[in-house]
Amino acid sequence: MTGEARTDVRVVRLDPARDAEGLIRFLSTNRFPFHGTPAPTAEAARTHVEGGAFDAPDSIAYWIEAGGERVGVLHVQEATDSTPLLDLRIAESARGAGIGTAALRLGTAAVFHALPEVTRIEGNTRVDNAAMRAVFERCGYVKEAHYRRAWPVAGAEPLDTVAYAILRSDWRTGTTTPVAWES
């Protein structure tokens, strides 16, 4: 099913106080190999959650549900900025099933609807995260930057970071405005 978006996916607003234990469990029981901390411990996840990383007004988070199960988290960081940054995490058991594509489309719409001052949404990933890069492109996000050796990797040389974004106007019209690389 890779490449196709599932139709049974929903994004549901996460309440960081009410959902703290579920969020801590999700973060600490899955590996996220393309994130800065690929395998957070329960203690590290608790510190992150209880430290306010998911709290409004600068942060909005959504549970990603598929088939009635919580299978991921979409975290909108810098939500008070005109260009928030997305962090998408899918449970190991749910990867490769089209959930990321559906979740990013739904999450993009949720952000643009909830935050009228937002003009664009950004997301970054490692250069070797081919699946996430494909999800960004399928969802209308455009590659805007390639930062050389900018992503720290524990025990290894840094990897390149690739930045994508979608403009509100492109999202609204279903078009993509290319980057003017030769300016």
Results as ranks from 00 to 15, higher is better:
5 A>N: 05
4 E>N: 02
18 R>A: 15
84 P>I: 00
132 M>D: 03
64 I>A: 09
136 F>H: 11
99 I>G: 03
9 V>R: 12
94 A>Y: 07
156 A>D: 15
19 D>L: 01
4 E>H: 08
22 G>R: 07
77 Q>Y: 01
12 V>G: 01
118 V>H: 07
66 A>G: 11
40 P>V: 06
86 L>H: 11
135 V>N: 01
90 I>Y: 09
70 R>T: 02
76 V>G: 04
166 I>Q: 03
96 G>D: 03
13 R>K: 11
151 W>E: 08
85 L>I: 08
67 G>C: 04
110 A>S: 09
15 D>K: 04
6 R>Y: 04
122 E>T: 10
88 L>D: 03
174 G>T: 12
152 P>C: 09
165 A>Q: 05
85 L>S: 09
24 I>E: 00
119 T>Y: 09
132 M>G: 05
51 G>F: 02
33 P>M: 12
172 R>K: 13
154 A>T: 12
43 E>T: 14
165 A>R: 05
36 G>H: 10
138 R>T: 03
120 R>Y: 04
20 A>L: 07
149 R>I: 02
17 A>V: 14
43 E>Q: 12
167 L>V: 03
86 L>T: 08
11 V>R: 07
155 G>W: 06
56 A>I: 07
161 T>Y: 00
142 V>C: 01
88 L>H: 08
176 T>M: 12
23 L>G: 00
32 F>R: 00
44 A>G: 05
124 N>Q: 15
80 T>K: 06
55 D>G: 04
148 R>Q: 12
77 Q>V: 06
88 L>M: 09
175 T>G: 12
112 F>S: 01
10 R>K: 13
141 Y>F: 15
94 A>W: 11
16 P>V: 09
106 L>H: 02
97 A>L: 13
150 A>T: 00
163 A>P: 03
62 Y>L: 07
125 T>D: 05
33 P>R: 08
129 N>P: 06
146 H>Y: 09
62 Y>E: 02
142 V>R: 10
19 D>G: 01
120 R>E: 12
151 W>A: 14
